[in-house]
Design a protein around this nucleic acid. Sequence first.
DNA 1: ACGCCCGCCTGTAAGC
DNA 2: TGCTTACAGGCGGGCG
Length: 280
Amino acid sequence: MPELPEVETIRRDLDRELSGRVIERVVSEGARSIRRHDPVEFVCRLLGRTVVTVDRRGKYLVFHLDEGALVIHLGMSGQLLLASPELSLARHTHVVLGFSGDRDLRFVDPRTFGEAFVSGPELGELSRLGVDPLSVVSASQLGSMLAARTTKLKPLLMDQHFLAGIGNIYSDEILFTAHLRYDRSAATLTPTEVRRLYRAMVSILEAGIEHRGSSLSDEQYRDVFGVTGSHQNHHQVYAREGKPCRRCHQPIIRVKLGGRSTFLCPRCQPAILRDFGSSR
DNA sequence: ACGCCCGCCTGTAAGC
DNA sequence: TGCTTACAGGCGGGCG
């Protein structure tokens, strides 16, 4: 499922490929994918508009237009693909934007958890998102954000109103790298642990972007050219149940948290407080 | 106000 | 082999 590194990879490519181009054609087949709009209204608000820049807020892509903005969330299985207009449409193609210069942008989404909508300059619910994890400037800033929170670490990292962009995969990877358990209460972290968490968060997300995202066997992530990412080859814990920890060789375990899978190393991420030193 | 769980979806894979 | 069932989970909303 696309999280910050995947959405950022898509954003960078789309900003380069589509900025300055005009939306000349809009085809919308999937009513559920544009559920906030009447289909005719959706088309009217996009036709003739020019893409100024492509931005990202958390996991949302924001296409700033000369009038208003197109917002797309990829949900669980959404893909945005650049293609020639003459290529046949893949199954589950819900929206096609035809751009100047004979370029299609196609929104493909089998599970239809994703959506596209046109917004005014206020961007609605996006204004309520938390800060971007890569905009947190220091460990001490993260520490003050965590200080008042009694929530378990993992649900907090995944709370889009707290930090915007981290999902199930990257939260597990970040917590492993920080040697912290998913169920530690956020406010109980020592300054050393906060610093480990801060460094892990930044380094894991940057590595994910560097590797153009994570593509797992059972999921759909592709970049706009249809190419898979490679960060899954660097995963330490996610989807590695039973496999040896890359750091200590103890088998990785899976637990359920809120009905969702959480992967961790029971030795590297102990329940009791342990000092792993200040390195890393 | 917060934590938890459900419903929305389809494709894949495990299990009988 | 073929069918059924479980699972994957982001997010909004409802409930306690």
